[in-house]
Design a binder for these strands. Structure first.
Lengths: 185, 185
DNA sequence: TAGTGAAATTATCTTTTGCTAATTTTTGTC
DNA sequence: GACAAAAATTAGCAAAAGATAATTTCACTA
């Protein structure tokens, strides 16, 4: 666990140090500018993180859902304030773990470090796949892949968030959907 | 070191187990389909990795240059054959290290695992920044950021490779360059 | 230095996206 | 179930990107 997220069960021993946290849908969990030195496990619900552009638009970068571990990389790795906002998209149940504690426990616990390494690697693979898709695929293909690979998740999330996730405007995603629907006929 | 790349000097002890490898510009280093279970340190030169699309186009995903450690994530993490090709863009000097050896040395060496974790984290930050830029910026802005942040590197690489790195065609990059040049006047 | 092949630019045309605003649909709440 | 607010769709137009091909520039080598 720890790096940023990704399903993984080998971290469960850490949960004994966790504090439960409940959030209602649409609540802001972590505001921009905070140095958030906790990691959290999502027991239930979906969250998104987004940037606010100069013109005030919210651009969603990631979704995280039940079973995943999340950390804010810039806070955890670099002790920097986050430039992103985290928001619950559904009622959520989280388990928070203080990251300084994780660091301390990792000090001489090789299996914990290995678990962290594994998670970092998984997250890296995920991020690289995403980069790949931006280079290789058109927005339309990215949307189709998303439908294919994460159907349950995208059903639970508003299209406008999906749109920025694949790098287009909501209007453009709507046109993509229309094109795809007409092609099927 | 180990996960995929990124400048880092704490790995240097591992270099005692490394084998030198020299390559001429344009040589293919790692062909698609290979399970490449080595990591390598770049002493000199630049390499790129690319995918070949169904229509035969080469799409460059990454550049790696002197001072960086590289590994093929799908080979190292998942023991899968790589879908990418690695090619030297300049005459290169590499130092190769067998990954099974790294695994063995890591077994009970907490500082080596920590080094691997650090590198994985750095690479993750890099990949996430890239994702961010695809979501937040237009191709033109990605190109400008690249010029700003990696001027020495992009001077050494052909524009057509830069183009796919930022997610556009070479023709489109050429138009972007023209637009930017005319705006400066 | 002349010649060759690759890379970059330009041109033309089509497709897609962005932007803005209007309209329709959906969602949530009283 | 009615109403209000948000989300999604649609429309119209401008800007940017893709595809293809022709032309110019650049780089390497004989």
């Amino acid at each position: 666990m720890i790096e940023d997220s990704i399903e993984n069960n080998t971290h469960l021993p850490l949960l004994q140090f966790a504090t439960p946290k409940v959030m209602a849908a649409s609540e802001i969990y972590i505001p921009e500018g905070k140095i958030f030195k906790k990691i959290f496990y999502i027991k239930k619900g979906i969250l998104r993180n987004f940037f606010v552009t100069k013109s005030g638009e919210e651009k969603t970068i990631f979704f995280r859902w039940e079973g995943q571990i999340v950390a804010i990389p810039e806070c955890i790795f670099d002790n920097q304030p986050t430039r992103q906002t985290w928001q619950a998209l559904e009622d959520c149940e989280l388990m928070e773990i203080d990251f300084d504690l994780v660091e301390k426990l990792s000090e001489n616990n090789i299996s914990l470090i290995k678990t962290r390494l594994e998670l970092a690697q998984k997250m890296l693979l995920e991020a690289l796949k995403r980069v790949e898709s931006f280079v290789l695929d058109k927005p339309e293909e990215r949307y189709q892949k998303l439908i294919r690979e994460k159907p349950e998740i995208i059903k639970r999330v508003a299209d406008k968030h999906i749109a920025s996730f694949i790098g287009v405007t909501p209007v453009s995603l709507s046109r993509i959907r229309k094109r795809l629907a007409s092609q099927k006929k």
